[in-house]
């Protein structure tokens, strides 16, 4: 599939306009003539559209042609390189999370994930017996030293210049070595034909949209580079009503959750940000702000929690964890479960 370089630059420079153009195209959808537009007779009814150059143009309704799938305008090669000059980071503020899982449902919905699959998981964590529990959303960490990339035999999982780790489902052989290698258990496998609508299944696959998922290959959080190309934020960031997720560019030193924008280095310094399992040397691109001065009680998150979590705990910031032993009753665990 040939994809044009011009459109690439266009997307980069005029991300927002492109969104508008697409939106205009969609709104005309109901008025589309069902079949070949060439044979259509002018109806005399005109619609106004926003052209690619940003001009408002008028077209006869009868000449509108449906575009079922706009091919993703980047080649595999460009997708493997990444967006130049960027280094994407995410900051997850644990003090704001109450396990609403809106991020998860938005992610699942937008990536058309197979039922049961979650790229974004929200863990009920407790570091040690007497420490406070908290909710910890976890995406792919987009490690700078990604163990998954090291072990992939065919370069189906790769690290880009802009820090994003992606999967090429057209190349993956399904050996699942990367799943064993990833210490964050973030990868999921398409054990069967993913349940997709016909329209989604027929879309042209792109590593950046990660849609459609393919049977016998792995999938994981992709940091939504397709949204970023459009100048928008990843789905989890926009979906969270509590502003837990901040996304941004380390080179520009800025992160935003859509409503608030911070200098990344200030935020990490002031709130003592940290990364998960630092001791493994994976160098994640996802930072966490500790669950202090919380907006919500941990217990509030239990309302959305079903089925109840198997209680298992993790040391914040390093890999060690404790599993609640059945014969070791905990005052806290007893109170809730």
């Amino acid at each position: 599939m040939q994809k044009k370089d011009t459109s690439r630059r266009y997307f980069l420079l005029n991300g927002l306009l492109a969104g508008a153009g697409l939106a205009a195209g969609c709104s005309g959808k109901t008025a589309f003539t069902p079949d070949r537009a060439e044979e259509a007779v002018p109806s005399g009814e005109k619609v106004k559209l926003l052209s690619i150059d940003g001009e408002v143009i008028e077209v006869d309704k009868a000449f509108l042609k449906p575009v079922p799938d706009i091919p993703y305008p980047f080649s595999n090669r460009e997708e493997r390189v990444g967006i130049q000059g960027k280094k994407f980071v995410m900051v997850i503020d644990l003090s704001r999370c109450k396990n609403l899982k809106k991020c998860q449902s938005a992610c699942n919905h937008m990536h058309h994930l197979h039922p049961g699959q979650n790229w974004l998981k929200i863990y009920a964590m407790q570091d040690a017996e007497h420490t406070a529990p908290y909710w910890q959303p976890a995406t792919c960490m987009h490690c700078d030293e990604p163990p998954c990339v090291k072990v992939c035999p065919v370069d189906a999982t790769f690290k880009r210049q802009d820090g994003i780790v992606l999967i090429d489902s057209d190349r993956c052989v399904g050996c699942r070595f990367c799943m064993a290698a990833c210490p964050y258990s973030t990868r999921v496998f398409n054990w069967e034909e993913p349940a997709l609508t016909e329209e989604v299944a027929s879309r042209e696959y792109s590593c950046e949209t990660s849609v459609p998922q393919k049977k016998g290959t792995v999938g994981k959080c992709d940091f939504c580079p397709d949204m970023v190309r459009k100048g928008e934020l990843p789905h989890c960031v926009t979906a969270c009503p509590n502003g837990v997720f901040f996304f941004g560019d380390m080179n520009e030193d800025v992160v935003t959750n859509g409503a608030e924008t911070f200098r990344f280095s200030d935020l990490i310094r002031d709130k003592a940000g940290y990364r998960l399992m630092e001791d493994l040397g994976t160098k994640p691109s996802v930072y966490y702000l500790p669950p202090v001065n919380r907006n919500f009680k941990f217990e509030e998150g239990l309302k959305t929690e079903e089925p109840k979590p198997t209680y298992k705990t993790v040391d914040r910031g390093n890999s060690e964890y404790l599993r609640c032993k059945k014969n070791h009753p905990r005052p806290f665990a007893e109170k809730i479960w």
């Binding site: 090291k150 072990v151 992939c152 035999p153 065919v154 370069d155 189906a156 190349r171 993956c172 052989v173 399904g174 050996c175 699942r176 070595f177 496998f189 398409n190 049977k215 016998g216 290959t217 792995v218």
Partner: peptide, 23 residues
Amino acid sequence: VDMGRPERLVNLFIYGRIQSPIM
């Protein structure tokens, strides 16, 4: 047999990367 996409076995030879223990 363990591979999710056995028909892509040939990828190991086309795209094989020597740093993977599988190779």
